[in-house]
Design a binder for these strands. Structure first.
Length: 795
DNA sequence: GAGCACTGC
């Protein structure tokens, strides 16, 4: 029984007059606990003590360490001559910044780690160690490095901004801006490389696509896989393929080695080590592990215990401590490991003494405790679960803030979640006005994707919405769950980027101890059909035998194989079909890819329209959510003109067509209809059209000229049947009691309130998504006749 | 009556 959350109104009146008495005194109410990580690091005898004061202090000691070693970065000498003066000046300034990075003194160790037969390096580098920018530069002039170095990132923005930074540091133009450019990047919609590119940042998905074309990655001498701890499905696939290349014979590479560096921010390398070690063993190479604790020990004292001590299960944060105290090396013949300390200021952790029911209410109290107690400056970052809790808390904080006395600094609340328009997201990066504290109310987006400057205090609800695919039901659940320890540590770390910070955990220390160590990897939580198709397209016949870092359950793999078979992406023998190959090259889920292929069979007009619809399904919401009741009503009225009785798919098509027909002022048009102008300027449409042409899904003579602005009834049926070819299993029929029941599994499903068919009753529905939140919802829904469903299975 | 976060030649 969860107590009903108090409304802002009731509090503003009764409890909070005068503002603060209702909120317990922070020193009594919250148990204090020092984060002892810093203390341990500071007593480390082997390196100068690290003080939390300034980055300058840090840079000095580490710069000196480099000088003592008397080594120079060869990357430096070799390119100097070709530089113009201003670039050189800039680079000199950047060089001192590079020398200040914690990773700098490890340059020769890192180079050594990948020489000779050592083809795999596992590197743990905490946030701020500089690993992403420096490791490729350390490696690029090694004798084995004749080709290009690829470095993967989970996100597009990271790939681009890292490339820009490294280009600056090397004093080379970026990407395609000059044929002499040595640093480039490749992400969806934006590839910028030159013939001279030596270091290429790319997204994991991009590297997977390159692997389909060139399974041996012949243009690369090394692949650096960064941010592995985030464990996206794509990174798991990349690692599996890379293991095959490094442990296999090098015939496909004409004997040239491929060096692989795997980098992670958390000390989870035991699993990675075993993963690659098993690969070497399976390939018949000697399985020799020498665990070498301490610095340059000889390997005689190879005790498993020191290694398992590193991964002691009871305390993840303990791992970080012991690893900072002494560099832990584990060596095998082929695999080396390397630990780099980060540059993170200490963060003090506070727990609640008692568990609470309502974290929104508790967050409210905590925010104001902090605001009254802590000196300025120091912005707050609050981690919540979703848009609903962010908006609820925003309202409450704003109400309470009005009751503060004039002597108290002001509060500026800033919501931050993915569905928020870009302009509103940008507000978190602006400096707060004088005498104002920013309070950023964020979802998980702030855990990895967005770094907010100025944050010194984190408030962590300890919860997040987690998506989990359920094979049996064929649906996604999106539920609020406790986060893992590593996520809690990640959130805490957001307070220590610029100065010493604090983290208020809205749960007890006991609760923290009970959290799972790591977040469940995505591959155990998602629909595997796309991953299986990628494997099949790269020639993996036995997907159960694929080298997974974490093996997904058999049920999930079987479900995926079955779905691909139903889509015609696989033949009866389990090998990929021509259709499957076409689908695997499209940047879409297999089901949506199947719709494209079906539409291509129907001819030009149909394909063009299906692409218009799918491009809308692949981007942010075309019809953005609105805050106030007033605008909601206005929007509903304006959008009526675009809505189609057949459902969401034809509504999207009508919207694209109306937008395309508007020749004068499209921005004004979008505003009039409450349609997202940004979402309508859709690169996916362009990309899909180009890919269909490249893949010859159309006769060579056909081209995408601008098509009709209206769609005939016969055409709409054709279009819906194309969608059914991909989504035949996502259908439900109307029951006498007015509910819908799925054809497969006979489960109750409700039409999502965002659908134009919400509240309508039709014979049958077809939908793109089946999600369980508070109940089972079908999203992106169209009306279909039940006899069409049987039809699509006829070849 | 409702929308965690990413990604794709």
């Amino acid at each position: 029984m969860e107590p009903k959350r108090p409304t802002a109104k009731s509090h503003a009146h009764s409890v909070l007059t005068p503002a603060f008495q209702a909120i317990p005194n922070p020193t009594n109410g919250v148990k204090r606990k020092r984060d002892d990580r810093f203390e341990r690091t500071a007593t480390n005898a082997s390196s100068p003590p690290r003080k939390p004061d300034t980055a300058q202090n840090l840079s000095k000691s580490q710069g000196n360490g480099q000088l003592q070693n008397g080594k120079q970065d060869p990357a430096h000498r070799s390119t100097d001559n070709s530089l113009s003066k201003p670039l050189n000046e800039k680079r000199k300034a950047l060089l001192s910044a590079r020398k200040a990075l914690p990773i700098w003194p490890h340059a020769s160790e890192i180079r050594e780690s990948l020489r000779g037969v050592r083809d795999v390096m596992l590197l743990v580098g905490e946030t701020g160690s500089g690993k992403s920018t420096q490791v490729p530069q350390f490696l690029m002039n090694e004798t084995w490095c004749q080709g290009c170095i690829a470095i993967t990132q989970p996100r597009r923005v990271a790939a681009i901004s890292l490339a820009r930074r490294v280009a600056e540091e090397m004093g080379t133009p970026l990407g395609s801006s000059s044929p002499a450019s040595k640093v480039g990047y490749s992400v969806r919609f934006d590839t910028s490389t030159s013939p001279s590119t030596r270091i290429k940042f790319l997204t994991e998905g991009m590297l997977l696509q390159e692997m389909l074309r060139d399974p041996w990655l012949r243009q690369y001498s090394a692949v650096i896989v960064d941010e592995v701890h985030e464990r996206s499905v794509n990174v798991d696939l990349v690692l599996g393929f890379l293991r095959g290349i490094v442990t296999g014979d090098k015939k496909g590479r004409r004997g040239a080695p491929l060096k692989v560096a795997v980098m992670s921010a958390t000390a989870d390398i035991e699993g990675l080590f075993n993963f690659f070690d098993e690969g070497y063993a399976a390939a018949g190479k000697i399985k020799s592990q020498i665990f070498t604790p301490g610095h340059q020990a000889d390997g005689e004292d190879d005790s498993e215990s020191s290694w398992s001590g590193l991964s002691s299960p009871e305390e993840t944060e303990g791992k970080t401590k012991s690893s900072s105290d002494q560099t832990v090396h584990i060596k095998s013949t082929f695999i080396s490991t390397c630990y780099i300390e980060g540059r993170q200021f200490p963060v003090q952790i506070m727990y609640l003494p008692e568990p609470v029911q309502d974290f929104v209410e508790t967050a409210l109290r905590t925010i104001f405790q902090i605001h009254y107690k802590e000196p300025m400056p120091g912005d707050l970052l609050v981690f919540l679960t979703g848009q609903d809790t962010v908006e609820a808390l925003e309202k409450l904080v704003n109400e309470y803030a009005q009751t503060m006395g004039p002597e108290v600094p002001k509060i500026l609340t800033l919501p931050l979640f993915a569905a928020l328009p870009q302009s509103a997201q940008q507000r978190v990066f602006q400096r707060a006005p004088p005498k104002t504290r920013k309070v950023i109310l964020a979802t998980n987006i702030a855990e990895t994707s967005v770094t907010v400057p100025g944050v010194r205090i984190v408030v962590d609800s300890g919860k997040a919405k987690i998506k989990q695919f359920r094979n049996r039901l064929g649906l996604d659940s999106l539920l609020v769950k406790p986060i893992s320890k590593s996520a809690a540590i990640q959130r805490k770390g957001r307070a220590g980027r610029e100065a010493a910070g604090q983290c208020y955990r809205l749960y007890t220390e006991q609760d923290y101890i009970k959290l799972e160590t790591d977040t469940v990897p995505e591959i155990l939580r998602c629909d595997l059909s796309a991953a299986v198709l990628t494997m099949k397209a790269r020639g993996v016949d036995d997907v159960v035998g694929f080298p997974f870092l974490t093996k997904p359950g058999r049920e999930g793999l079987e479900k995926a194989l079955l779905q691909l078979l139903q889509l015609g992406a696989l033949n009866e023998d389990g090998k990929i079909s021509e259709t499957g190959r076409q689908i695997s090259r499209l940047p879409l889920t297999p089901a949506l890819g199947r719709v494209i292929v079906a539409a291509a069979d129907e001819g030009m007009g149909c394909l063009s329209e299906v692409i218009d619809i799918i491009s809308c399904l692949s981007v942010e919401n075309i019809f953005p959510n609105l805050n106030t009741e007033d605008t909601k009503e206005q929007a509903e009225a304006a959008r009526q003109e675009l809505y189609r009785r057949q459902g969401d798919h034809l509504t999207l098509l009508a919207t694209v067509q109306a937008y395309a027909a508007e020749r004068s002022d499209r921005k004004a048009w979008a505003e009039k209809y409450f349609v997202s102008h940004r979402a309508m300027q859709n690169d996916v449409r362009k990309q899909l059209r180009a890919q269909c042409q490249q893949q010859k899904l159309l006769p060579a003579t056909a081209s995408f000229d601008d098509h009709n602005t209206t769609t005939s009834e016969a055409r709409t049926i054709k279009i819906l049947k194309c969608f059914l070819r991909g989504f035949a299993s996502n259908t439900a029929r109307l029951m006498p009691d007015g509910s819908y029941k799925t054809l497969v599994g006979n489960q109750t499903v409700a039409i999502h309130p965002s659908s134009v068919l919400f509240g309508k009753k039709v014979e049958g529905i077809m939908y793109n998504e089946f999600v369980f939140t508070n109940r089972s919802y079908a999203r992106n829904v169209s009306a279909v006749q039940m006899d069409w469903v049987g039809e699509v299975f006829v070849p």
